[in-house]
Computed example of a mutant assay.
Amino acid sequence: MIIDSHQHFWIYDPVRDGWIDESKKVIRKDFLPSDFELILKSNNVDGCIAVQADQSEKETNFLLELADENSIIKGVVGWVNLLDSNVEDKLAYYSKCKFFKGVRHIVQAESEDFMLRDDFQKGICKLAQFGLTFDILVFPDQLKNAIELVRKFPNQKFILDHLGKPFIKDKKIKNWESDIRNLAQFPNVACKVSGMVTEANWEDWKTSDFDKYLDVIFESFGVKRVMYGSDWPVCLLAASYKQQLNILQNYLNSFTERDKNKVMGANAIQIYKL
């Protein structure tokens, strides 16, 4: 079974979605399960995890409603304000929904030390009691603080999104590699192979551009803590769904069928309790 562990749905709003600027006009429109279902079927993908793209409970409710109505959605990683004093009540409410699997905050848009804030960490410490994951979305210069975060919460399941966004376009790897290897030492952290094509040269990437970054991820996390994600529709800025999927599948050609199955679906099922 293949599970796409990371993709988004939205009804385009020019105010809310201001991050979709002129350079991203190809995704400046609605993307809904009706658009995605045929894409998954044509690529032999069995289901997906819908991940928040907007920091609002309205977004979380929207994704949960879509999950109720569309069988392709196997889980939702939503947004809850982890800084609120009533965060425990909010998590208790959402955790009653069978599709609500975890929380994500767009930390890449925050200050470098955001993950070290007491109010943020007070929110993080509430997740484990509800069996919820936390997706870490950061830029490379925030990875060191991500390491400090996961060190403090050994019983919390964390998932690093998009490989920590390495500078693939600029072919930089040294500092990112060191931080990734340190982060992966914590067994409560997994990693999504997602969002790679948009970190490369959108117009002129090659499959081989990603090999050394994938080598680091698999050497560091191993096949039990890596999962496939498309980052659709954002991936469309640089590649079709099939093209981004082929990058990972080609890389896995020399792996055993058992290990391929872990990366392509079984790990997501286990980590997100699908």
Rank of each mutant, 00 (worst) to 15 (best):
F186K: 04
C191I: 07
D17N: 10
Q142Y: 00
L248P: 08
F167A: 10
L64I: 09
K90H: 01
K206V: 08
F139C: 05
Y213Q: 10
L252D: 05
I27C: 09
N175D: 15
F114S: 07
I11A: 07
S240I: 07
R151Y: 14
Q249D: 09
G75F: 06
K242E: 15
L183P: 12
N261L: 06
L163C: 11
N81S: 13
S5D: 01
I217H: 03
K174G: 05
R151F: 11
K90L: 05
Y93A: 06
V15F: 09
D231P: 09
Y12W: 06
D89L: 11
A239I: 05
D141W: 13
D259Q: 02
K206E: 13
F99Y: 15
G75A: 11
D211K: 15
D231S: 10
M196R: 07
K224R: 13
I217W: 00
I11P: 02
T133Y: 04
I72V: 10
I247W: 12
F31A: 00
Q129F: 01
R16K: 14
V138M: 03
F158K: 10
D13L: 01
Q55A: 02
F114H: 02
K96E: 15
D84M: 07
I168K: 05
G131Y: 12
L64H: 08
N261W: 00
T207Y: 15
K165F: 01
Y272R: 06
H162I: 12
K172W: 12
K262H: 06
E59N: 09
I147Y: 03
H8W: 08
F218Q: 06
F153C: 09
L160D: 00
H8S: 06
I147N: 06
S56Y: 02
S34Y: 14
I2L: 11
K192D: 11
D13P: 02
A266M: 10
K58E: 15
G195L: 07
E219N: 13
K41L: 11
T60N: 00
A128R: 14
I247C: 05
K126S: 08
L91K: 02
T60C: 04
Q270E: 15
E203A: 14
G229W: 00
D161S: 08
K144H: 14
G78E: 01
T207G: 07
A184H: 13
D119R: 08
S23W: 12
L245H: 08
D118C: 11
M227W: 09
E112L: 14
W232H: 03
V45P: 06
E65P: 04
